[in-house]
Design a protein around this nucleic acid. Structure first.
Length: 993
DNA sequence: ACCGCCGGGTGCC
DNA sequence: ACCGCCGGGTGCC
């Protein structure tokens, strides 16, 4: 059986597509200008790209026996059957080929024997194969021990590896049935394990939805009691919790207070033993006092987290709503209460004097309430719909240097983001300025001095890190859900005036900040205050923000110290199992903190369809995550009873004129693409294909969207530099406007200052510059490994971007068939019920602009939300729309991808999807912004689809993708050629060839 | 004996 | 290491 597969088959995106026994070799497209974003396996542009491929090595080359020597010089010990890792030691003074052998903990056990090292060094240095070791027996030997090695690599490297070994007189042995896991035999009681036959399948193509389904399957049989107990929250919480939230609360608190060993560890005599790696040690491995709350969007993760904070406030006890009641002095903390009241005289201040704290001198009593009244929940900011105000401490800095943008992260510098963020910070702070007091902040030396007092001290502070887009949501929710008489020290660590004082921060109950701020602080030379505190608890909201292990952001997060750690995310596995690893390493789950062990014990086995690996993954996930979907049930009742959601497709017939334009563009394109078909170069000209499709999609919406014809010339090989430049810029514009995800493969975030490399890959300028800096002098493109250089990055000239929209505005406005249909529907709806609010969604922001005209003309009050808007404007727009008062907007123009997860637009109960998305999941996500908790009405979605057009064809493909959704983690085999053919057929379908 | 054999010293890379 | 390897002592049976 030919089991070819591409490393980049769609599963690659999800499960790293490591495939077993593959022979094919078109993993990388050789065509340098090929845009990996649009790899042929997936006409639907993939969600995003994984970054640097410290590529997994999918194929087992074979095994080898060797020796570990020099045991007596090192302290690292191993058990029989324990996994070890091999590490090159190029600077060893005795042998430049030296290879260290380390146990699971990273302690050196010995070295590989010299002759073996001589053969392996080359292989390891050039990453021709991943060599993994297990000590089969003889672990207690005094001088040397045997080593069983397994070689994994890419098919294309097999030969050179074998040759290299042969040159040194080594020959790989047969691949055993155990898939090289070898641990299997002993991890469940020492019997010879079940034989792990080569999986007879490779992973099947999966869409994001399918992946999610697969992930949810992992939870199907997990109905343990530990997750069905319910718990009432602290009385400080005003909002009654739903049953599933009470369950989450109980589970999370039990995890925070748990004394169990972490998963896969057991106690054996006086040792703690890891059943996966067979590693053991005396020291008790710390369990994760936390985990992953992976509830679907809209199930109230934020509220649940707030409940956890207040209910397991200190020493396993809740924060009471009236802290100052007699008999409930917060003994251990009362001395730490910092009062940031400028007007109060400052008494003894121990290093904090500049912050004017005063100590509670007496037993807290009634008077104390008043004294503490500084941040009552009843004075919360106008961010809360309920008109509560949150106690955000805002302290004006007198140090103007603090405000300089020079302090902002490199990556933010020069981008418009900075200004937005800063603006937003001011908006935030000023709205919270009820308690605003001028505070003088003097030199950092005082801070540092005071920080020292804090080190080692346990704080009661919870640090919450979230994306900027949900920062205000957190503030709102604290305001909404906590009783007004509860005093909570809450500090939004954000904006140029944020106080970088660990002493102040560690006296808060809650510190809220964003990933960007955290990362920026971490990157600056001075100690980041956030990193000098031992937090009681760190909560990562939208935890997949750290899914890229190489991102600075991830490093900053991983470096936080906390007793309890939580990740909130609706999508724990967004693209690949890899994503989970970042989360696990944040949770400090031994031994997975180290990539190698995660990879060897779970990721690769699972990807290859190995039962044991899947079992381990399941058991791991079961242990540390709680997940409910919208359709989950509690005691037979759905978790959420959402009103129905109906999707209608309304077919649109183009006007004669539109049709004429459509046909002419189509015919022209068809001729070109048809030529590619006959030449067999369709896939190589994929960008052109996309370009054509884009233009057709635009015409379906409005002929004014039609961007200047992409001349269909590809690279001819002997272009002048200027031609090359033009072509690349054109490509970049295409990528930016094609409606695919405009994400940078390095930061996995939306592109800020996009640049294109000569190999035609688009990144954020700051991101790619960082890469070039790090890898100099021989930087390689993270996507295709071609050489790149800082000098030949091309930026999109701003005029080019700007002129597009200007040109449009100069044109006289005309309607289009789709606009007519929309307006008809909206007007009819208004007649029926003027209170109903609608979302009008498109991928083309210029289209949204075109829609503004008739909305105005017909007297609609509307608002707009798209990716280009400043954060402050977004918040305003959302609040304005969510407002239900008379005269509030009834229509929101929404760009498909605007707003992060968690965007709540439940005031709308109608959605008009103006154009189909490549990715059906993106559509669903958009619908969910109004079909979510808080939605009281039936949600009706109308998709406008132009008859007899590319849009209809897109629907067809969407549907077949959905139908494919049956497979399990790789139960279907997909032949590479089949796949290739399938993609070509998709293109055929799309343009009716 | 420019060998073999013996037994002591010695030991990762 | 109850090994291998090294190099010095030694040398018929």
């Amino acid at each position: 059986m030919d089991r070819q597969g591409a490393c980049r088959d769609p599963v690659w995106k999800y499960f790293q597509s490591v495939q077993y026994g593959t022979h094919g070799n078109f993993s990388r497209l050789s065509h340098p200008t090929f845009l990996p974003r649009f790899e042929f396996q997936d006409v639907i542009p993939p969600d995003d790209f994984l970054t640097s491929d410290e590529e997994l090595d999918p194929i087992l080359f074979g095994t080898l026996r060797g020796q570990v020597v020099g045991l007596r010089y090192y302290t690292g010990v191993v058990n029989n059957n324990e996994m070890v890792s091999l590490q090159r030691e190029p600077n060893n003074p005795y042998d430049k080929n030296a290879i260290r052998v380390n146990n699971v903990n990273g302690n050196q056990v010995g070295h590989l024997k010299r002759d073996l090292a001589a053969a392996l060094a080359y292989i390891m240095d050039n990453k021709l194969a991943q060599v993994e070791g297990v000590v089969p027996y003889g672990a207690n030997n005094a001088f040397t021990m045997p080593l069983h090695m397994t070689f994994w690599g890419k098919e294309e490297n097999r030969k050179v590896v074998l040759n290299q070994l042969m040159k040194h007189g080594f020959k790989l042995g047969p691949t055993p049935k155990t898939l090289g896991l070898s641990l299997e035999s002993s991890w469940s009681s020492g019997r010879a394990g079940p034989s792990y036959n080569m999986p007879a399948h490779v992973a099947v193509q999966m869409t994001t939805e399918q992946l999610k389904m697969e992930f949810d399957k992992l939870f199907e049989d997990l109905k343990e009691d530990s997750k069905t107990n319910e718990m009432e929250p602290s009385e400080a919480i005003e909002t009654p919790l739903l049953p599933h939230q009470k369950q989450a609360l109980a589970w999370m608190i039990s995890r925070e207070n748990s004394k169990d060993l972490p998963p896969f560890w057991e106690q054996r005599n006086d040792l703690y033993y890891n059943t996966i790696t067979n590693f053991s040690e005396k020291e008790r491995p710390e369990n994760v006092h936390g985990g992953i709350l992976a509830d679907d969007m809209g199930l109230g993760k934020t509220l649940t987290a707030i409940a956890v904070i207040l209910t397991n406030f200190a020493d396993g006890k809740p924060l009471l709503s009236k802290r100052s009641k007699k008999n409930q002095p917060r003994k251990e903390y009362k001395d730490e209460t910092v009062k940031l009241r400028g007007s109060k005289t400052n008494k003894e201040a121990d290093g904090l004097s500049t912050l004017e704290p005063s100590r509670c001198s007496e037993e807290p009593g009634v008077s104390d309430i008043q004294e503490n009244k500084k941040y009552p929940m009843s004075e919360l900011s106008s961010f809360c719909p309920k008109r509560r105000k949150i106690a955000v401490q805002y302290i004006e800095s007198s140090d103007s240097e603090e405000m300089e943008t020079s302090e902002l992260p490199q990556t933010m510098k020069g981008s418009s983001k900075v200004k937005e963020d800063t603006e937003f910070a001011h908006a935030l702070a000023s709205s919270a300025s009820v308690t605003k007091k001028k505070m003088l902040k003097k030199g950092a030396s005082v801070m540092k001095g005071s920080k020292k007092c804090d080190t080692g001290e346990r704080t009661r502070t919870t640090l919450i890190i979230c994306p900027l887009s949900v920062l205000s949501n957190w503030i709102d929710q604290f305001g909404q859900h906590i009783k007004s008489e509860v005093h909570l020290n809450f500090y939004v660590y954000y904006g140029p005036d944020r106080i970088r004082d660990p002493a102040l921060l560690s006296k808060q109950d809650i510190v809220l900040t964003t990933y960007n701020i955290l990362t920026h602080d971490y990157g600056t030379k001075d100690d980041s205050p956030l990193h000098s505190i031992k937090w009681l608890r760190v909560i990562l909201d939208e935890g997949h923000a750290i899914r890229n292990p190489n991102a600075q952001q991830t490093k900053a997060v991983l470096d936080l110290e906390a007793e309890r750690r939580w990740v909130l995310t609706g999508t724990p596995i967004q693209n690949s199992l890899k994503d989970l690893w970042s989360l696990l390493s944040f949770l400090k789950l031994k031994p997975f903190i180290d990539r190698e062990w995660w990879h060897r014990t779970i990721q690769r086995p699972v990807t290859m369809g190995d039962e044991g690996g899947l079992r381990r993954l399941q058991s791991l996930i079961k242990n540390i995550t709680l997940r409910r979907t919208k359709t989950s049930k509690i005691k037979g009742k759905p978790v959420l009873e959402l009103p129905e959601r109906k999707v209608f497709i309304q077919h649109i017939t183009l006007s004669e004129e539109e049709r004429k334009i459509y046909q002419s563009v189509k015919n022209e394109g068809k001729a070109t693409i048809g030529r590619y078909f006959t030449e067999g170069t369709v896939l190589a000209h994929y960008a052109d294909v996309l370009g054509l499709l884009l233009r057709l999609r635009q015409i379906c919406c409005h002929t004014h969207l039609l961007t200047n014809g992409m001349s269909s010339s590809g690279p001819s090989g002997n272009d002048t530099p200027e031609e090359l430049r033009k072509m690349l810029i054109k490509k970049m514009k295409l990528i930016l406007s094609s409606g695919s995800d405009e994400e940078c493969a390095i930061c996995l975030d939306s592109l800020t200052v996009p640049v294109i490399t000569h190999c035609a890959h688009v990144f954020c300028k700051p991101c790619i510059c960082q890469v070039i800096q790090n890898e100099q002098p021989h930087a390689k493109c993270p996507l295709c490994r071609n050489n790149i250089h800082g000098d030949n990055l091309l930026e999109c000239p701003p005029e080019e971007l700007a002129c597009n929209s200007e040109k449009k505005s100069k044109m006289e406005w005309t309607s289009s068939s789709k606009i007519n249909a929309l307006m008809h529907a909206l007007i009819e709806l208004r007649t029926e019920n003027p209170n109903i609010k609608s979302l009008v969604v498109s991928q083309f922001t210029t289209f949204l602009s075109l829609i503004e005209t008739p909305l105005k003309d017909s007297g609609f009050v509307f608002t707009r939300l798209d990716g280009s808007m400043a954060q402050k404007k977004r918040v305003e727009s959302i609040q304005c729309f969510q407002n239900t008062e008379a005269g509030s907007p009834t229509v929101m123009l929404l760009s498909l991808k605007a707003g992060g997860v968690g965007l709540n637009l439940c005031a709308a109960s109608r959605v008009f999807l103006m154009d189909p998305a490549w990715n059906p999941a993106a559509e669903d996500q958009c619908f969910d912004r109004c079909h979510r908790l808080g939605q009281k009405q039936e949600v009706i979605i109308t998709k406008f689809i132009v008859k007899d057009s590319v849009e209809e064809n897109m629907l067809k493909i969407q549907n077949t993708k959905r139908e494919l959704a049956a497979g399990a983690f790789g139960t279907k085999k997909t032949d590479a050629n089949e796949m290739k053919q399938a993609k070509i057929n998709e293109i055929r379908t799309l343009i009716d060839l």
